[in-house]
Nucleic acid binder design. Structure first.
Lengths: 240, 240
DNA sequence: GTGGAATAGTTGTCTATACCAGTTGTGTAA
DNA sequence: TTACACAACTGGTATAGACAACTATTCCAC
C-alpha cells in the first residue's frame, strides 16, 4: 500500500490511502482513525511523515484532530460540496419545498458559437440541449435550458436526465462539480415566458445563467433559467 | 522577539513576527522573505519549526512558496477578503468602471422591528441610515440604503461615511467582514425609483438586500440596493 | 461515593540531520 | 559570443527521538 521507492511522496500515498478508507466506508464518520504511532509502525515510516499526511487531510476538511483523544473522520465531502451549489433541486429542498420538473425537450445538437466559447469546446461539437419547466410544490417556478457537452457525459438519455443532474454525475460518473459562476439579471416577461410560467406579459423575471465547472476547471454545463420574480428570490451566502 | 521559554509555541511566535513584518511594511508585497535556513539560524531554532510557522502562514494566505526560488509575500489580507464581497466600490472597480456616490441623507434613527431582527439588536436601538446614489463612470447605477448599528461603529459621520465603508472599518476599527448573505429579487421600477435612477416607470430593476457579518458572526450592516437592470448584472462565483 | 494519584494512551511541539529537487548566477570551454 | 557545467542557493521530503500537554481509565484512600 505504501511504496517507499515510488517517486510519489510517502505522505501523499498515505493521504490517498486514508481517503480511500473513508470512501470505502472502512473508516466511518465520526470514528477515530488509527493513531499516528500506529500508522508509523504499520507502514514502517516516521511519525512526522504520518503527521504531514494527516495535517493535509485536516486542512482539506477530511479529518479533525483532538489533542489527547485522537483524530476523527468528518462528514463526507460530497455532502459539503453541493452546499449552496444551487442546482434547482437542492435549492428548493433547502427551502422546504418539493421540487419537480417537466421535460419540454431533449435534443443533441451542434453547439452555437457563443455557447461553445462558454463551455470551452469547438463550434458544432455535440451538446445536449435540455429544456424543462421547474416546479416547486407543483407550481411553475422557472423555465430552464441546459447545455452539456456530449463528450463529458456520453450516456445521458431522456430517462436519466429527469433525475437531478448533479446526483446523476456524482453517482454514475464519479465526477463532481467544484465551482460555478452565475450571472443574474432582471428583465420583463415576454409573451412566451408569460405563457409557460403562467404570469402576465410585462411581469418582472429573474434571468440566471450558470456555468458549472468540474474539479479540473473544465466547464461542465451552461444553464439558462427564467424565474418568476413573484415566487422566486435568489439567496446566497458568501464567506471569507 | 522569540522567547523559547514562553508557553506560546515558537512556531506561533514566529508566525506573529512574520505577520507583523508584513503589516509594518518591512516585508513588502511580492518580496521574498528570508529563507527557512536564515530564520533558523537567526533565532537559533530548528528549520522544521520555521517550516511549521511558514506552512501555517501559507495556508492562511499570507505567503506563497516556490521551490528553488523562495517564499513570497502575498497581497494584503484586506484586499483579498473583500474579493467577491460585493461592496459597490469593489464590484465596480473589478469591472473596470470608476465608482462614485452621492449622499442623499445621513441619519441616526431608532431601528424598526424587522431591521432590528436582521441586525440582531433591540427595537429602537440607534442605527445609522445612509441613503446614497451609486454611480459608475458618472451614470446612476443604483439607489442604496444602509443600516448600521451605532454601537458597532461609534465614530461614523457624514464625512467619513462617504469613503468606502468597508475600507473605513478595516482601517480605523480593525474589524473585518467575514461573511455576507444576499437576497436578490427582480421587480419593476416605481415612479420614485424611475426618477432617481433616470429610467422609465415599469422598467425592470434588481433588488439586492445584503446582511454582512463580522468574524464573530455579529451582523454589521443591512444594505438594500435597487439596481437598474439595463446597466447592472449581478455576477458571482461559488467554490467547492 | 468522592477525590485524587498513577498510568497509559493520544496529539502537540521541537530538535538535529540528511538527502532530494528545482532555480539562478557564474565561470569555463567550445 | 554562446553553450554547458557546476556551485550555491532555494524549498521538499523523510528520519529518529525527546518531552510537553491533554484525555481517559483504573485503582486506592478517605
Amino acid at each position: 500500500m505504501i511504496n517507499k521507492n515510488s517517486p510519489v511522496p510517502i505522505y501523499h500515498q498515505l493521504e490517498e490511502y486514508i481517503k480511500q478508507q473513508i470512501e470505502n466506508g472502512i473508516l466511518l464518520e465520526d470514528a477515530v482513525i488509527p493513531s499516528e504511532r500506529e500508522f508509523a509502525e504499520k507502514f514502517q515510516i516516521s511519525r512526522m511523515t504520518v503527521r504531514q499526511a494527516i495535517n493535509n487531510l485536516v486542512s482539506e476538511g477530511y479529518l479533525t484532530r483532538q489533542k489527547g483523544r485522537g483524530t476523527f473522520v468528518n462528514k463526507k465531502k460530497v455532502e459539503q460540496e453541493l452546499q449552496g451549489m444551487t442546482s434547482f433541486t437542492e435549492d428548493m429542498l433547502s427551502r422546504g419545498m418539493s421540487p419537480s420538473s417537466t421535460l419540454l425537450s431533449f435534443q443533441i445538437i451542434p453547439v452555437d458559437k457563443k455557447t461553445a466559447l462558454n463551455l470551452r469546446i469547438n463550434e458544432n461539437d455535440s451538446v445536449y440541449k435540455i429544456k424543462r419547466i421547474r416546479l416547486a410544490d407543483g407550481t411553475p417556478m422557472a423555465l430552464e435550458t441546459a447545455y452539456i457537452p456530449v463528450s463529458l457525459v456520453p450516456g445521458l438519455t431522456e430517462a436519466n436526465s429527469n433525475l437531478s443532474l448533479y446526483q446523476y454525475i456524482e453517482e454514475h460518473l464519479s465526477l463532481s462539480i467544484s465551482e460555478a459562476r452565475q450571472e443574474i439579471e432582471a428583465s420583463i416577461a415576454s409573451s412566451r415566458d408569460a405563457e409557460t410560467l403562467g404570469i402576465t406579459l410585462g411581469d418582472p423575471i429573474l434571468l440566471i445563467e450558470r456555468i458549472s465547472y468540474l474539479q479540473n476547471e473544465v466547464p461542465f454545463e451552461l444553464v439558462k433559467s427564467t424565474f418568476r420574480a413573484d415566487r422566486y428570490r435568489f439567496v446566497h451566502t458568501m464567506k471569507r
